[in-house]
Design a protein around this nucleic acid. Structure first.
Lengths: 201, 201
DNA sequence: CTTGTTCTGGAGAGATCACTACAGAAGAGG
DNA sequence: CCTCTTCTGTAGTGATCTCTCCAGAACAAG
């Protein structure tokens, strides 16, 4: 059957994944070594490789778990009725997640492989695609809003999308650099207020 | 006196610096190896070390040259009369420099050491300070504008500064991800238009 | 020419990289 | 008990990292 036999694992796999997430989130894929991981997880090399395959597979699993636990706000934004609502949900929640008190500041999807070795290009491409999908989501909503006369047609949908994405990704960088949650939320509030006054004028 | 004696250098130091800039600008400090540099520069290890000292010193020289050649717009923005003028100069010129046709897209100051080894912390700190000085410059201008009644006091100066910095650094990331110059300028125009309508309302 | 100085490539040091071979340990099933 | 399976640490693989040693080459000065 699917009954588990053999010597049981000597460590908590979920906890290990969580600690690996801390490292990758705080530093990035290529500058975290397997030795850093084994030291933080408290296991030997072979245990780590037996449990996760290799460094790239471990990172992929970390990204999946990260998206599940901290990336829900993107889906929430995707369900919003307008581009403006989506942007507000996206940016406010991102500001929260990028400044969690017991987690590295910043965003794993934005800065997990900003500087990568040529050999790690597939990982960087995967993260870039995830970022691009956020931009595309906002752009699609802006297109629909303009078609439905729910938003002024002064700027192209892509400008709206890139503006939102720039704030999203820029805030991630600022969080890494030490900006507080209040700092980021202040910048987001300012952006949303200006969005409103532009639409009302 | 300071007459140059000994065997002359067999390569153009300025050209070598330029090629090193390409590598560091496109990838980042820690993921560019000395072997990458010697291959791109067409010199051997000892020649590179004799000419530049070591990898960190070469990077520092690259950053200096980069700032001199591509970072002039920051000083230009610092000379602007208001925060709004400064932001417009900063963001529009940044969009240009981050999408030069014969250079890597993005910004060396923003993403030169986003993912760094613990041993490279001094380099990351230096770049962060350069970014912070941009934020501080905008914040100081916003403070002065509000005091002079040249800008509404609805948002704190720091919110204005972080908003501008988020757009600046976010655009750098988007440029790295393949956004075109028109894309970035569209996002900047939108931001500046909204700034105007917020101030006029 | 000789002497002094600097640059050159080759060869390699010492450390670290991701990863694995192996033998024994620790459980389940019989 | 014994067998089967899986996990464990140790030890080490070849590759790559930054950086250096060294002997010779290429110039200027005398």
């Amino acid at each position: 059957m699917a009954q588990r036999t053999g010597r049981p694992r000597g460590f908590d796999r979920g906890l290990a994944l969580d600690r690996a997430m801390d490292l990758f989130w705080g530093r990035g894929y290529d500058v975290v070594g397997v030795k850093d991981l084994t030291a933080a997880l408290g296991v030997s090399d072979s245990s780590l490789y037996a449990a996760f395959g290799n460094k790239a597979a471990l990172f992929a699993e970390v990204v999946d778990e990260y998206s599940r636990r901290y990336g829900g706000y993107v889906d929430e934004a995707a369900s919003a009725p307008t581009a403006r609502h989506a942007a507000a949900i996206l940016l406010r929640n991102a500001a929260q997640q990028q400044t969690l008190p017991d987690r590295p500041h910043g965003c794993l999807i934005v800065n997990g492989a900003t500087n990568h070795l040529p050999a790690s290009a597939p990982i960087a491409v995967d993260l870039r695609r995830r970022r691009d999908s956020v931009t595309a989501m906002i752009e699609a909503k802006a297109t629909a809003d303009i078609a439905a006369r729910a938003m002024s047609e002064g700027s192209p949908p892509r400008a709206h999308a890139l503006h939102v994405s720039a704030l999203w990704e820029g805030n991630a960088q600022l969080a890494r650099d030490g900006a507080s949650r209040a700092d980021l939320l202040g910048a987001v509030d300012l952006a949303m207020q200006r969005w409103d006054s532009a639409e009302l004028s």
